[in-house]
Nucleic acid binder design. Structure first.
Length: 560
RNA sequence: UGGGGUGUCGCCAAGUCGGUAAGGCACAAGGUUUUGAUCCUUGCAUUCGUAGGUUCGAGUCCUACCACCCCAGCCA
């Protein structure tokens, strides 16, 4: 994973780091961190941040810490911590140290006392509503709280009693004394501690006051010796506060916060709130639903860590708003699987074919390469029998010249096997085709028939030897490209056809398929064994992504 | 009417000290092909949000304007 082919193309963050190293800043070291709040599952947007923070450190011989930003016990849990560790590891990254912001609660507290003693922080006893009122608006300056003038001694006493649990939630908060008239709202005496009599998943009941992100994050970074603290653009106007705290505390390590724009990806939503609702309201099958942009979902869908990393590299890192097309992600996984996925034959929407001139009961073993270009992937045998399945879409009673598949009275090549000819169609009372009666040309195995040109090749599976399989086909979870941009509620924009379950047949070699094995079903797409539901006796495949489909495009053009 | 950002091809994105617009995705046209896949070849911004200015020369410097995004949690 560490090879140079995975290096990022030029970007502004790398330039900054290169300059810092050239200037001898931080003794030439690069230490980054990835600081998720354990209140949900990681998604593809986090993958962008992970690849960047870990990637930059890796590239310059540095290290990256994993730090759970667990300052709000109301929303967090160890379950989410575990999932995040698993996802990061699966993505292929190794953190140097695992920390929790809560590891620093005592130090954070002591720093707060220091700020109080230096008259840089005070206990405010205004209510939340009052604080909001006093804060002013975007265009109007705020006003000082009447409690702003409390003496350091009084503040210290109050703050200690806050810690001791003498007050109820919301009775007091600790605020930084900066500037209520600042044009930057974040600098208008931000709250840094609030009272919350709740159990914390790491510190238990030790604390009833919890520090706020802005105060916690910069100090945590400093304590860990982080050199470059990468985060998304929403924290850009928090940077003055980040710097203020470290400066006022005289911290000897002052990391540089650098912001980049978050990923916007087509046909999905990325906000934790929305993902959480989809999961909790059972609109999807858990955090790892293959339709979700979560790392766990992409994994279950069949995406590889390498493809996700490649995707993150392709989209780049900038400060500009970006709207990335889904096809970029799809291209990344196709490119990976094109080279690595063994080819097999699987029929998603089966229709029975009887080869009338092939003896009943006979089984012919036909060799098939596992990859058209990579002999090292070996070959296997496929049983050819009198009764087969082909895909419904590969037969038409009549069609024009552009249709290169099986037509009544016409011929087609069965992949890795013989040329067959459709002689007759059997339909049920409703007119639905239930069976095709065909003949095969025994002299076409591995060679073209004499004097005729067979234009098409279709895939097939032996009806008697094929293995039934559940095949899950996925479409985008939302019907519009940018659900977040719509004035409609995103729930209303969900795609009712995002999951289609098919019952098809796959060639018998697949009974040996293991969890998360990925294959190319030739002419169909890439499929992955579902890690939750597939059993050897009941195979379940997820379609990762279809093959590029030029034919579908041609058909569409003809329709219009 | 406050502050902070961003504007280079349909999308993403390189563009060093100003020297005459990388690349990827997508798209189009050919070629190879027992996957309408892959692969190969070719094409695809006289123009860099707009308008002025400086300069022999500007995406890169200056000025003004326009558009879009973020910020008023005791969330992160």
């Amino acid at each position: 994973m560490n090879d140079s082919t995975e290096k990022y193309p030029p970007n502004f963050i790398r330039s900054i780091i290169e300059k810092d190293i050239a200037a001898g800043k931080n003794a030439g070291q690069v230490v980054t961190r990835f600081p998720p709040e354990p209140n949900g599952y990681l998604h593809i947007g986090h993958a962008k941040a992970i690849c960047l923070s870990f990637g930059m450190a890796q590239e310059f011989g540095g290290t990256t810490n994993l730090r759970f930003d667990d300052t709000n016990p109301l929303k967090e849990s160890t379950e989410f911590m575990e999932s995040m560790k698993e996802d990061i590891t699966w993505l292929g990254f190794k953190w140097n140290e695992e920390r929790n912001a809560s590891d620093y609660f005592e130090q954070l507290y002591q720093f707060a006392e220091q700020l109080i003693r230096e008259d840089k922080a005070y206990v405010d006893s205004l209510s939340a509503d009052e604080i909001r009122e006093y804060r002013g608006t975007l265009t109007q300056p705020g006003r000082n709280s009447p409690y702003r003038a409390r003496s350091a001694d009084e503040n210290l006493d109050l703050f200690r009693r806050m810690r001791a649990g003498e007050f109820a939630d919301g009775e007091h908060v600790l605020r930084l004394k900066i500037d209520m008239a600042s044009p930057n709202i974040n600098m208008r005496d931000p709250t840094i501690y609030r009272i919350r009599h709740v159990h914390h998943h790491q510190t238990g009941d030790k604390w009833c006051i919890y520090p706020i992100y802005d105060y916690t994050h910069c100090i945590s970074d400093s304590l860990e010796g982080i050199t470059h603290s990468l985060c998304d653009l929403s924290f850009e106007d928090h940077r003055p506060l980040y710097d203020w705290v470290l400066d006022e505390l005289n911290m000897n390590c002052h990391p540089q916060q650098i912001e980049f724009s978050r990923l916007n990806l087509q046909y999905t939503v990325m906000s934790k709130r929305k993902l959480k609702q989809l999961v909790e309201d059972k609109l999807v099958d858990g955090w790892d639903d293959p339709r979700l942009p979560t790392i766990a979902g992409l994994r279950r869908r069949g995406y590889t860590p390498g493809a996700i990393r490649d995707f993150c590299r392709r989209i780049g890192v900038t400060k500009s708003d970006n709207n990335v097309q889904l096809m970029v992600l799809e291209h990344a996984i196709r490119e990976d699987l094109e080279n690595t996925a063994p080819r097999v034959l699987g029929v998603v929407d089966p229709i029975k074919v009887v080869i009338e001139n092939f003896p009943e009961g006979e089984v012919m073993a036909l060799g098939a390469a596992n990859h058209p270009k990579d002999e090292s992937m070996g070959s296997r045998e496929m049983p050819f029998t009198r009764e087969l399945y082909i895909d419904r879409a590969d037969f038409r009673e009549e069609a024009n010249r552009k249709y290169k598949r099986l037509v009544l009275g016409g011929e087609v090549r069965l992949r890795n096997a013989f040329v067959i000819k459709a002689e007759d169609v059997v339909k049920d009372s409703s007119g639905e085709i239930v069976e095709l009666r065909c003949s095969y040309d025994p002299d076409t195995l591995g060679k073209n028939p004499e004097g005729r040109k067979v234009r098409g090749v279709i895939h097939w599976v032996s009806a008697s030897h094929g293995v039934p399989a559940e095949i899950r086909l996925y479409e985008p979870l939302f019907t519009v490209e940018w659900p977040d941009a719509s004035e409609k509620d995103y729930i209303e924009l969900m795609n009712p056809a995002s999951l289609t379950v098919k019952h098809g047949f796959v060639e018998p070699s697949l009974v040996a398929a293991g969890v998360e094995d990925r294959y190319q079903f030739e002419r169909e797409g890439y499929f992955c064994i579902d890690r939750n539901d597939s059993k050897p006796e009941r195979l379940v495949f997820n379609r990762v992504v279809g093959l590029r489909d030029t034919w579908a495009k041609i058909e569409q053009q003809e329709d219009s």
